[in-house]
Amino acid sequence: MTTKKENRVMVTVIGQDRVGIIAGVATILADAGANILDISQTIMQEEFFAMIMVVDMEGAKLPFDELKITLEEKGKSLGVQIMAQHEDVFKFMHRI
């Protein structure tokens, strides 16, 4: 496993869709110097909006802990739930 891969995090946004969610999250990530590698979105249970971003933390200026808190606070102001988790959680759970 390369070190670069180990520094990727998944940012997930779940909640009611509204204007400004992607912009809000992308701004925080850009300010932190974290690079968005991929974005996708889906509708869960025909009601909830779920956006998933793969983010490279390699060049980030902000430590992961602080970025996570900033994102969570942004989520509160947008009325959605924003989570940032290390990519390994997903890789480990579903793959050997």
């Binding site: 997930t12 590698l37 889906t42 779920a50 997903f90 890789k91």
Partner: peptide, 18 residues
Amino acid sequence: MPMTISNDEILETIRMVQ
């Protein structure tokens, strides 16, 4: 860079925890 894990799998993990 491609996503190696599907959205469904990611959301499943989140549902299990949340």
